[in-house]
Computed example of a mutant assay.
Amino acid sequence: MSYEDLIKYGSEKTVHEAGLLREEVKDYVGQDGDIMESRFNV
């Protein structure tokens, strides 16, 4: 999600409900303003 979307909607949940939460592939190059969460399996 972008920082602007998070500020506009107020929480990760509302960004997700608006359909703006993205899942990218592992070789995605982050853009300025992106908020990323890394998920992995141990």
Rank of each mutant, 00 (worst) to 15 (best):
E24G: 00
E4D: 14
D34F: 08
S11K: 08
G19W: 08
V42L: 08
T14I: 03
K13G: 07
Q31T: 01
S38P: 00
S11F: 11
G30Q: 07
E24Y: 08
E23G: 00
E17V: 03
D27C: 02
T14S: 15
V25Y: 06
G33I: 00
L6F: 14
K26F: 14
T14A: 15
I35N: 07
G33E: 05
E24R: 14
S2C: 04
Y9F: 15
E23Q: 11
Q31K: 15
Y3W: 02
V25M: 03
Y28D: 04
I7D: 05
Q31N: 12
S2A: 02
K8G: 02
V15C: 13
V25L: 04
E12A: 09
S2H: 08
E24T: 09
G10P: 02
E4G: 08
Y9N: 13
D27F: 04
M1F: 13
L21E: 07
Y28T: 03
V29M: 07
R22Y: 01
E12P: 02
R22V: 02
L6H: 04
E12Y: 11
N41Y: 12
A18F: 03
E12D: 06
V25G: 11
E23H: 10
Y3Q: 11
Y9Q: 09
I7A: 08
M1K: 12
D27H: 10
L21K: 12
E4K: 14
I7G: 04
E37C: 06
G19K: 03
G19D: 04
D27K: 10
D27M: 01
E37T: 12
E24V: 15
V29S: 09
E37H: 09
D34K: 05
L20R: 14
H16D: 09
I7K: 15
